[in-house]
């Protein structure tokens, strides 16, 4: 097995007295698709935010591409250039067109020439069926389209790891499919991803590893076949009976 791309070791995070992450240990290898499942408040989003250093961890180690990034001497911006993130509420910049949203970081952070950045963005937008919306402003688009743009925006910096934080939670059921379709494409192309999701069917289909979080702990992790059909923990079983139909 190859060395892990991302490694979290006994990561802890608390807000005041409330422990949000409690000794979370997680390995992500290249081409893995890790799905974090669990009820709201179980720590999925906090874990993602700690992984790309939007939050400082209170203890434990995070390693990315072989380097410890939880060290305060590490420049978070360097890490984030290699790690894309997509949020639940899209968080597109409303004052910029779709194309400008996608070329902002490549041009301003990575110093890519305007032409090159736009070519790359147009190509990706076309791949994901957004060719007609390149010059529109985000508010003109549907939720599903906006979230697809947000995905493209994250991909335009060519990150080695993609973090997706419940990216379909704000969408209509019929729009969920178009966004998950993209994530499925990305998974098939070998993109390494960590995603927090409530879409169990999707997790079962694309995940290489499923982690069940409860009260800030990864209670159990394994291949989807095992977690969904034969969970080891009673809590996992309870959660799954509540969220799975039938």
């Amino acid at each position: 097995m190859t060395a892990p791309l991302l490694e979290a070791l006994e990561v802890r995070k608390s807000y005041g007295d409330r422990v949000v992450l409690d000794d979370v240990t997680l390995d992500v290898h290249p081409h893995d698709v890790v799905c974090l499942i669990g009820s709201s408040g179980s720590g999925k989003s906090t874990l993602l935010r700690c992984l790309n250093l939007l939050e400082d961890v209170d203890d434990g180690v995070i390693r990315f591409e072989g380097r410890e990034i939880s060290d305060p001497r590490v420049d978070p911006r360097e890490v984030r250039q290699r790690m894309g993130m997509v949020f639940q509420a899209y968080n597109l910049f409303p004052h910029l067109s779709v194309l400008d949203n996608c070329t902002l970081a490549p041009r301003r952070v990575q110093g890519l020439a305007r032409g090159a950045a736009e070519d790359r963005a147009r190509e990706l937008l076309a791949t994901f069926g957004l060719a007609d919306h390149v010059d529109k402003h985000p508010d003109r688009l549907s939720g599903g389209q906006q979230q697809r743009v947000a995905l493209v925006r994250a991909l335009c910096t060519q990150p080695t790891l993609l973090l997706l934080d419940e990216i379909t939670a704000a969408l209509d059921p019929e729009l969920v499919g178009e966004v998950l379709g993209i994530v499925r494409d990305l998974a098939e192309r070998g993109t390494t991803m960590v995603l927090a999701t409530h879409e169990m069917g999707f997790a079962r289909e694309v995940a290489t590893t499923v982690c069940f979080l409860s009260d800030g702990r990864i209670l159990e992790q394994g291949p989807p076949a095992q977690i969904f059909t034969d969970p080891r923990e009673e809590r996992t079983r309870q959660f799954l009976t509540r969220v799975l139909p039938g």
Binding site: R12, D17, V19, D58, V61
Partner: peptide
């Protein structure tokens, strides 16, 4: 559990 000693690294 709340009075945990932080690790040396932390």
């Amino acid at each position: 559990m709340t009075d945990r000693q932080p690790s040396d690294r932390e």
